[in-house]
Computed example of a mutant assay.
Amino acid sequence: MVKREQPTLLTWHSHRAGDEVLQNALQSLAQEHKVYIRRVLYLIQPQHKNLAKPKIAADIEFNKLILPIDDPTAHLEIYEAVRDKVLPKIINYLPLHINISPGTPAMHTVWLILHAGGAFPNNTILWSSQYDHKTKITRIDRMNFPINTYLAEIRLQASKQPEIAQYDAEYRSPARQNSLLQLSRYARLLGAPLLIIGERGIGKTRLVETHVTRLKQKKKLITVACGTLDSDSGLAESMLFGHIKGAFTGANKDRAGLLKEADGGILFLDEIQDLPKPLQRKLVRIFQDRKHRYRPVGSDKEQETDIEIVCASNRPLDELRKILDADLFDRLSHLIIEIPPLRDCREDLE
């Protein structure tokens, strides 16, 4: 196993002046920025496979990685090659520094696209090297610009919590790409209920747990499996709205209820089509009132809860419209995300 504390430089081979570009970059990093590279991961095309180790310090480890690319100006081809061949390897090359300048303009762009998507390990540093032909001096500058794409946010949080199973955020299929992009826009609209439609087993719950919570910037998530709520509306109402002591036989103490428990976070109503009918009517006001006011069972005093509401269903939208109370459906169906099944996204099975 390669020691992680050794700084690594990841860069493309420069076709015209590869040795000189690499040597100058290493020298400038050390002299100008006090970054002492101990390993180089050098990306080359097949025609350069017999390339000898450049004239760099003997104690710097040099590793070549051949990437077969037919067209060095084709952004997608370069992106897929780096994504599939390079990204799985760089976990063993930390801390990571990337010189984005060598190579074609398309290669430069791909580094930035991957950076904006959060594809590199946390704390990766990007550099841009420039050679002045008049002064014969190479300057290398750190690239500083913030990124805030939804994909970057998701990947950053995933790297911080590797023990949690993640819903893959990057797809090849246009259908799922569009769904995730739409989710990234809708989930940021605070105060508006979000409805996620998708077949059973497609990963709606994982999507909410790993993506929606981050996009809404809420750590607390209270999940209600609507199918498990007792058909007895009284007990189900107590579970959701809470009750006060003495509200009914057996109510020996106050109960906060799931609405209050979700205060400051997200209330996730999973498989909302299974919600008991009496509760559907009682939830209408929660959906339409921005303060989410309600009364616990047995109480004559209103309470408020600061929540984001997310619903999910495995039923098609037209079918869900017929199942739910008309007023409830009207209030939860403004922001709808439909996650397509894998059979319609063959590219994601490759």
Rank of each mutant, 00 (worst) to 15 (best):
residue 212 V to S: 01
residue 181 L to F: 02
residue 194 L to M: 02
residue 176 R to W: 02
residue 145 F to W: 13
residue 179 S to F: 09
residue 204 K to Q: 08
residue 198 G to M: 02
residue 200 R to V: 15
residue 220 K to S: 13
residue 192 A to E: 11
residue 197 I to V: 08
residue 153 E to Y: 09
residue 206 R to D: 09
residue 185 R to T: 12
residue 157 Q to D: 15
residue 165 A to S: 00
residue 195 L to A: 04
residue 180 L to C: 06
residue 141 D to A: 10
residue 160 K to N: 14
residue 164 I to T: 07
residue 213 T to H: 06
residue 193 P to C: 03
residue 216 K to D: 05
residue 191 G to A: 07
residue 174 P to G: 11
residue 218 K to F: 10
residue 160 K to S: 15
residue 168 D to Y: 13
residue 164 I to G: 00
residue 154 I to T: 05
residue 187 A to G: 02
residue 162 P to H: 08
residue 222 I to G: 00
residue 184 S to K: 02
residue 143 M to C: 09
residue 221 L to Q: 00
residue 191 G to V: 06
residue 143 M to H: 10
residue 183 L to E: 02
residue 188 R to K: 12
residue 201 G to V: 08
residue 157 Q to L: 15
residue 159 S to T: 00
residue 210 T to D: 07
residue 168 D to T: 10
residue 178 N to C: 14
residue 145 F to D: 12
residue 162 P to N: 01
residue 196 I to S: 00
residue 213 T to V: 13
residue 192 A to Y: 14
residue 199 E to Q: 09
residue 149 T to H: 00
residue 202 I to P: 04
residue 214 R to H: 12
residue 216 K to N: 10
residue 222 I to C: 01
residue 161 Q to M: 14
residue 208 V to D: 01
residue 142 R to D: 15
residue 169 A to N: 09
residue 180 L to R: 02
residue 149 T to F: 11
residue 214 R to G: 08
residue 202 I to A: 00
residue 211 H to P: 00
residue 158 A to I: 12
residue 171 Y to F: 15
residue 153 E to R: 11
residue 185 R to L: 15
residue 152 A to K: 02
residue 150 Y to G: 02
residue 221 L to K: 00
residue 184 S to M: 05
residue 203 G to Q: 01
residue 205 T to G: 11
residue 219 K to Y: 14
residue 147 I to M: 03
residue 209 E to N: 12
residue 149 T to V: 03
residue 175 A to F: 08
residue 195 L to S: 02
residue 208 V to T: 06
residue 169 A to M: 14
residue 167 Y to C: 03
residue 144 N to L: 11
residue 167 Y to H: 05
residue 222 I to Y: 01
residue 180 L to T: 08
residue 209 E to Y: 04
residue 220 K to G: 00
residue 213 T to M: 04
residue 170 E to W: 11
residue 154 I to K: 07
residue 208 V to E: 04
residue 186 Y to G: 09
residue 164 I to F: 09
residue 182 Q to G: 09
residue 141 D to L: 10
residue 216 K to L: 15
residue 146 P to F: 11
residue 161 Q to E: 07
residue 182 Q to K: 06
residue 178 N to A: 13
residue 207 L to T: 03
residue 167 Y to W: 14
residue 220 K to F: 11
residue 189 L to D: 05
residue 222 I to A: 06
residue 189 L to N: 04
